[in-house]
Amino acid sequence: MTVDPPEGEPSGGHLRPTSGGVLVGWAIVGLVGGWLLHGYAERYMAAAPVVTWAQPLALLLVAAILGTTAWLTYRSIHVHHQRPEAHRMVNRLVLARACALVGALMAGGYAGYALSWLGVQGDLASQRAWRSAAAAAAGVAIAITAVLLERACRVGSDGDDT
Results as ranks from 00 to 15, higher is better:
Thr162His: 10
His87Cys: 00
Leu124Met: 13
Val155Phe: 05
Trp53His: 08
Gly39Phe: 06
Val90Met: 10
Ser126Gln: 12
Val62Phe: 13
Ala48Met: 02
Thr162Glu: 15
Leu101Gln: 12
Gln121Arg: 11
Thr69Arg: 04
Leu61His: 11
Thr73Tyr: 09
Ala48Val: 00
Gly33Lys: 05
Pro56Val: 00
Gly108Ser: 13
Gly30Met: 06
Ser116Asn: 13
Pro5Trp: 02
Thr162Tyr: 11
Glu42Tyr: 01
Val29Phe: 04
Ala129Thr: 08
Gly108Tyr: 10
Arg131Ile: 00
Leu93Cys: 03
Ala98Ile: 05
Tyr44Met: 02
Ala114Asn: 04
Leu36Trp: 06
Gly156Ile: 00
Ala136Gly: 12
Ala54Thr: 05
His81Gly: 01
Arg75Gln: 06
Met89Thr: 07
Ala141Gln: 10
Pro84Gly: 08
Ala86Cys: 03
Gly33Met: 05
Met89Asn: 10
Arg92Lys: 07
Arg131Gly: 07
Ser76Ala: 03
Leu149Cys: 04
Arg75Cys: 06
Gly30Cys: 02
Ala107Ile: 00
Val29Lys: 00
Glu9Phe: 08
Leu57Val: 13
Glu150Asn: 05
Gln55Tyr: 02
Gln121Glu: 15
Gly33Thr: 05
Ala135Met: 05
Pro56Met: 08
Ile28Asp: 06
Ser116Asp: 15
Ile142Met: 15
Leu101Ala: 11
Pro49Leu: 05
Ala47Tyr: 12
Thr2Asn: 12
Leu93Pro: 13
Ser132Leu: 08
Thr18Leu: 01
